[in-house]
Simulated scan of single mutants.
Amino acid sequence: MNNIHLEITDREGLLYEIEAPTDMNMNLMEVMRAYEIAQDGEIGICGGMAMCASCQCYVQNEEEVVLPKMGDEEQAMLSEAFYVKPNSRLGCQIPVTSQIDGLKVVLAPLS
Rank of each mutant, 00 (worst) to 15 (best):
Y83S: 11
E63A: 12
V106Y: 07
A20M: 09
A53Y: 02
R11C: 10
C92H: 07
E62I: 13
E30Y: 11
S79A: 14
N2A: 12
V84P: 09
Q99K: 14
M51G: 01
E19Y: 13
V84Y: 08
L78A: 04
A34Q: 11
N25K: 12
D101I: 10
C52T: 01
I18V: 15
M29I: 12
L28C: 09
N2V: 14
E73P: 00
L28E: 07
R11T: 13
L90M: 06
G47Y: 02
V84C: 04
E74K: 01
R11S: 11
E17P: 02
Q99P: 00
L6R: 03
P21G: 13
E63D: 15
E63P: 00
K104N: 11
L67A: 10
V105G: 12
K104E: 15
G44N: 02
R89L: 10
E12S: 14
G13W: 11
V66F: 09
Q39D: 14
L28V: 09
L107A: 10
I8K: 03
Q99N: 13
H5W: 02
Y35M: 00
N87H: 08
D10M: 10
A38L: 05
M51L: 10
I8Y: 05
C92L: 02
E36A: 14
M51P: 00
S54K: 04
T22Q: 06
E12K: 15
G48P: 10
G48N: 09
L6Y: 02
P109E: 06
V31P: 12
N3Y: 12
S111L: 05
E62S: 12
M24D: 13
L6V: 01
L15R: 15
G41H: 05
A50F: 02
Y35D: 05
I94Y: 01
E36I: 01
P68H: 13
E74T: 00
C92M: 02
N25R: 10
M77R: 06
C46N: 07
G102R: 07
G48H: 10
G47A: 05
T97Q: 03
Q60R: 15
P68K: 15
L110K: 08
Y83M: 01
E42P: 01
C57H: 07
S54G: 05
V31E: 14
V84L: 06
E19R: 14
A20E: 11
I4L: 08
A76R: 13
E74V: 03
L6F: 04
N87V: 06
G41D: 06
V84G: 04
K85D: 01
V66S: 12
T22M: 05
L14A: 11
T97D: 06
M24G: 00
G48S: 11
N87Y: 03
